[in-house]
Structures are given as C-alpha cells and as structure tokens.
Write a protein that binds this DNA or RNA. Structure first.
Lengths: 152, 152
DNA sequence: TGTAATTAGTGGCATGTGCAACTATTTTTG
DNA sequence: CAAAAATAGTTGCACATGCCACTAATTACA
C-alpha cells in the first residue's frame, strides 16, 4: 500500500511484539507471563544470581526485574534467599517446579527462532545473529554513555 | 558473567526497548510519546489513511492505534474526519503543527539508525535490513496463519 | 427488502516496562 | 569511628500494548 522502505527499527518492533505474543501464548498455561520467561532462561543457565546481576546482564530495569521475580516466586518457580554476606541482596534460585519445565520453556524460544529462520540458510542465520549483536552492542554502549549518573 | 550465547530474540528485545527509550527521550519535548511516532511517520508517508489501514500496515492492534491517534489528536498533531462514503471510518490527517516538525521526527529514527549502524559497512547494513525483513515476514505470516478467526 | 454477518472504531482490563523516590544495608572517607 | 556516598531491592506512577466485548455502520444473502 505505502511504498515506504521498511526500516530496521520497524522490523525490530514487529519482531519484538510478535515474539512477545508467541511466548505469552505458549507459556500462559503455566501461569508464566511474557515478561518472565527471560529470567527463567537466564537462571537455567546460571542459578542463584542476584536481581542486580540479572538486571545488568539482561539490561532490564531493576524495578521490572523485581516485579517479574515477585511473580515467579508467587507462582512457585523461584525462591529468594537473603545473602548472608550482603543482606541487601538476594540469591534467586529455581525451584524443582521450575526445573521440571525447563525443556518446555527453553523450547518456546527455540521454536520461535525456527519460525523466524524459515527460509534462511545456516549462514544467513549466523549473520543475522552477528549483525543483531553488533547493533545491540551499539545500542547498549550508547545507552550507558548517555546514562544520567552524575559525572565522577 | 554468564557464558550464554545471546540469541536473536534477546537482541531483538534489547534493540526494541532501547530504541523506545531513545525515541521517547527525543520526542518528549514535543509531547509525543514513544508509542506515537510510528503513526506520525506513516502519515508523513501517506496522509489521510484510516485507522484500519494504519493498523494493518503497521501490524499494530486497532485498540492501540485508536489510543495513539487519540493522543496525537489531543496534542494537535492530527485530526480525524469521518469518511462520507463510509461513516464507520475516519481519514486521519496531519495538521500544520505536525508537518512543521516532520524533519525532526524523522530525524530521530535516522539518528537511531546511525547509532545502531556504527561500525557496520554499507553492505552489512543492507544485509541486516534484508535479514530482518525475512524474519519479520516469517513472524507476520505465522501470526496471520494462527489467527483465531473462525475458519471459513 | 429485511435480517444476518462483517467491519471500523472505542473503552476497559491485564500485563510489561522504565523512571524516580524511597528504605535498608554496606562501603567510603574525613 | 561517624557521617556521607553508594548499592540492592521495593513501590507507585505513567505509558504502551494486546485482547475482548461492545456500538454503529455497512455489506451479504435468503
């Protein structure tokens, strides 16, 4: 209809929104929302992280992290244990219930990736990841540099 | 910290969220939120579209579209005029006020694109767009096919 | 032609997300 | 050591977004 050249930003938006819809749909039955799976997946990789570590690794606001973990805890997927050596922070651990659905939760992302990769060669998939990584790195770097922390 | 291989989905999420933050920050002064710029940009390309057309072109829920346009109208950037030939629908037109900031609004996306493209060759940028387009097309197609409309 | 189905748009609800102000610890420093 | 600065986490707010139920208008069709 409109002859506009689609831009990177627009495709990113579409991919993000559709991805969220897909993930939400697939995990709904477990009471896991589309905002929580990313934390589960991170914890499957490395259990016992603090919220701070999760936030900075995933580049997600600490408030958002706190809320997502609160929900996961309420659903019985994680438990938070105060660190003895620093009582401000927690260690977040997956429960048995969370480990039990690990393959399923990870499978959702895998399946989505397959849907996206349809018709792409192995090489193209590799390239796509590489280019997204570069752009993501640029975005993250820009964000940090323009952080509003008072200059040292 | 964690050795996890970053996935396409994760980078897409980061790029989307950081992009929204950037856009929101840049347009704040004009009273335009991060959810509205996409409609302005579409209308700069083709003025007078209906909400339905905007929704289906941008692949954005019609409820979301309605709310975004309502805000743009409240801020004086668009006006909606009932179509004579179909009184259910509007034509959405940009106002003088919107045209006046066209370059600035479009510049925000251009600048963000430049930030993301830092260190990428022309060829890589072309490739990135091409691959995102393919994946976005896959996502959109999948979404349509799994639409919950009663089967004909 | 008149009833049923479809379509454009609205409004309410739930959720995710970032920001900013706040509390409670811990670390730094004079 | 005591006061100040930094840090981990929480909470409230604003906004974006999708879904669903609804209304009003249009189109299909029996």
């Amino acid at each position: 209809m409109i002859d506009q050249r689609h831009t990177i930003t627009r495709w990113v938006s579409l991919l993000y929104r559709y991805g969220q819809m897909y993930i939400g749909e697939r995990l709904k039955a477990h009471g896991i929302g589309k905002g929580q799976h990313i934390f589960l997946n991170a914890l499957y990789k490395e259990d016992g992280l603090s919220q701070e570590e999760l936030s900075s690794y995933l580049k997600i606001d600490k408030g958002t992290t706190a809320k997502a973990l609160k929900k996961l805890e309420a659903q019985g997927y994680v438990l938070r244990q105060v660190r003895e050596e620093d009582k401000r922070s927690y260690r977040v651990f997956l429960t048995e219930k969370a480990w039990r659905i690990k393959d399923e939760v990870r499978g959702v992302l895998t399946d989505w990736r397959h849907i996206l990769s349809d018709g792409l060669t192995e090489e193209e998939q590799r390239l796509a990841l590489e280019l997204l990584e570069k752009m993501g790195g640029n975005a993250a770097r820009f964000n940090e540099e323009n952080d509003k922390t008072p200059k040292a």
